[in-house]
Design a protein around this nucleic acid. Structure first.
Length: 242
DNA sequence: AATTTAGACAACCGCGGAGTC
DNA sequence: GGACTCCGCGGTTGTCTAAAT
């Protein structure tokens, strides 16, 4: 495919954004929105490529971005969602309001991965202890997860049955890492079914049905919690897979 | 106090999907 | 149906900061 370079490198700024650039970008988006990222920097008078603007907005300037350290609950949620979804950072971010995929990815690579990798809690972080004081562990029963189910997902009994039967360990499972994965067929099957069922509700445009869908959201939460619980149960049976 | 080292995070790069002409 | 453009995603890199020596 003919892909044009994301930007002509000549004359465009790169690297860290200045406060002035930030304010220009925010002001422009507040006034005109961001319907076309490629054209935006030109319209706003920024010497940046559209990609860079988009990234800056999404990861930093967006008003609903939650700044600050991740809570223990958020970290727990990331760990569990990652166990289910793998490196689908955007999907994980979709369930953690106010957090971006980039941020989650960074947190995962910097400390969560290591923490899971060494099941021994001995390796307390020496550096940046001020910044990241919260230390979490991943053993024992997990708490209920403050995770928003992604919008189109619903949880019928059938869905749950599929989830139950499709859970499987991959070869990457190890008792040390406490990680497990769900094969892709599970997600394709489940998402295909749930998108279909939920879209029929949304399309109807009926307020009563909309209320139903709201209650479906809460049952979604139950679905994920149950799924996690079941996954934890399975982790208690490692001898089957060794 | 100066230097080194490692962690954290912001930003970039390149690819693939989806939409449009 | 193919060419092209744009957007979003995930992986990777660069830079800054703070702890350790």
């Amino acid at each position: 495919m003919g892909r044009s370079p994301c930007c002509e490198k000549l004359g465009l700024n790169r690297g860290p954004w200045t406060a002035e650039e930030d304010s220009i970008l925010v002001a422009h988006i507040e006034r005109h929105g961001h319907c076309n990222w490629r054209a935006l920097p030109k319209q706003a008078g920024l010497l940046r490529c559209g990609k860079s603007c988009r990234l800056r907005w999404i990861n930093y300037l967006r008003p609903d971005v939650k700044r600050g350290n991740f809570t223990g609950e958020e970290e727990d949620a990331i760990i569990q969602l990652h166990a289910m979804l793998g490196n689908r950072w955007s999907m994980i971010a979709a369930r953690l309001p106010g957090r971006t995929d980039n941020e989650i990815k960074n947190v995962w690579h910097t400390h969560l991965k290591k923490r899971l990798g060494s099941s021994k809690p001995s390796a307390a972080p020496k550096r940046n202890a001020k910044k990241h004081a919260a230390v979490i562990t991943h053993d024992g029963p997990t708490t209920s997860i403050p995770v928003l189910p992604e919008q189109p997902i619903s949880a019928s009994a059938t869905d749950y049955a599929i989830a139950s039967t499709s859970l499987e360990y991959t070869e990457s499972f190890s008792p040390d890492s406490q990680e497990f994965q769900i094969d892709d067929s599970f997600w394709s099957e489940t998402l295909a079914m749930t998108v279909k069922s939920s879209s029929s509700v949304m399309d109807a445009g009926d307020p009563l049905l909309a209320a139903d869908s709201a209650s479906m959201l809460s049952s979604n939460a139950d679905f994920w919690v149950e799924l996690f619980m079941q996954a934890d149960d399975m982790q208690n049976l490692p001898q089957i897979y060794t």
